[in-house]
Amino acid sequence: MLTTIETTLIYTVLLGSLYLLVSLGFSLICGVLRIFHLGYAYLFVATIYLTWFFYHTLSLPLAVAIILMVILQALISIAIYYGIIARYLKQEEIIITGLLLIALIADQVANRFYPIQAAVYLPTTIIPGSIAVGSTNIAIQLIIAAALGIIVTALFVLFFLKTKTGLAVRAISYDLNTSKIMGIRVEQIYMFVMVLTILPVIVAMLMIAPVWAVDPTMGWGYMYTAILVSVMGGLGNIRGTIIASYIIGFVHAFASFVVAEPRLMNLAALIVVVIMLIIRPQGIAKTESLW
C-alpha cells in the first residue's frame, strides 16, 4: 500500500508538470485573447509531424529539423492570428469554427502522409534509461520533461511579473479597452501571445515523443487534458492552471495506481472537474484574469 501511495504521489508530480506544459498555452490564449481556442489541438500534431518531416523525409539533422519546425510553427501562428483571429475578432463563432477546422485539417494531413503504420519516432531522448525513485522505476526522460514543465512555467510567470511586455499582457487580460487607451498596441501583444503559446507545447511534445506513443489524432487527447485543466483552473488564470494541473495529475495517477484502472483516468478527471464546477463555477482562480 505504501508503495502504491508513493507511486501515486511521484506520478502526480510527473503528470502534473507535463500537464502544465500541455495546458499553459491554451490557458494563456483564454486569458488574454478571450477566445476558446479549439484549434489548439493542431499544435501537438504539428510539433511531432513537422519535425518528422524535416528530420526523416528531408533527412536533415535533428537539431536543424527542430529549429525549422519552431520557425514554421511561429509563422503558422502568425498566419492564424491575421487570417482568422484579427479578421473576425468581433465574430467569435467564426473564429471558433475556423480554429477547429485548422486542427481537423492538421489531423488529416498528418494522417495522409504519416498514418499510424508509419511508425513515427523522434529520437529526442536526452538521457536514456530509467532510475528508481523509492520503489518506482521512472524513465529519466519523463523526469526531465517534468522538470522542464516546472522551469518553463516559472519562466512564464517571471516574464509576466517582471517584464514590460509581460505587464502589457496582464493589463490586457484585466481590461482590453483601458489597455488601448493607455497606449498598448493590443494587436501586437495578441500576436506575440499566439507565438509564445506554442513553446510549452513544443517542449512537451519533444520530451514525450520518445516515451509515449504518437499518432495523427494524438492532439485531441492532449487537448482534452488542456481543456479540463483550464476549465478547472478558471479559464485563463495561470495560478489556477498550475493548481489544476497537479489535481488532474493526481486524479490520473490515483486512477492508474490506486484504482488500477488506467482506462478510467479521463472519466475520473472529468467527474472531478464537473463536481468542482458545481461547487465553484468560475474554477479555482479568484479572478478571470491572467494572474
Binding site: L167, R170, A171, Y174, D175, T178, T287, S289, W291
Partner: peptide, 9 residues
C-alpha cells in the same frame, strides 16, 4: 466616470 482599474495590479 466609473473607475476601471487593473484589479490585480
Amino acid at each position: 466616470q466609473i473607475p476601471r482599474p487593473f484589479p490585480e495590479l
